[in-house]
Amino acid sequence: MKLVIDESRCKGCNLCVLVCPYGIFQEGTELNSRGIVTPVLDRPERCTNCRLQALYGRMLCGVCHMICPDQAIAWVEERPFEPHKVEVEF
């Protein structure tokens, strides 16, 4: 599962930034094509729901999805072998 923000719906209220326990949503800095500063995702693969939804067969956490007033947060199936940004911690 992959966390996505629907850029055509998000109005940039940053409520998701406020509620995510992992701080996955970060306030954005750049205007998108609709003139809205949408949040950016910081290592979204850490999201509980991304990791465990398939295992438990139900939505886990999901507070960002519920609080987003613009129905802009969702999870999509990943295509096989999608490239990931890998960060190596020493």
Binding site: S8, K11, C13, M66, I67, C68, P69, Q71
Partner: peptide
């Protein structure tokens, strides 16, 4: 997207 202002709580209640 609906007509509600940025950050309006009504959208959350719909959810």
């Amino acid at each position: 997207p609906h007509i509600y202002c940025t950050g309006c709580g009504n959208g959350t209640v719909i959810n």
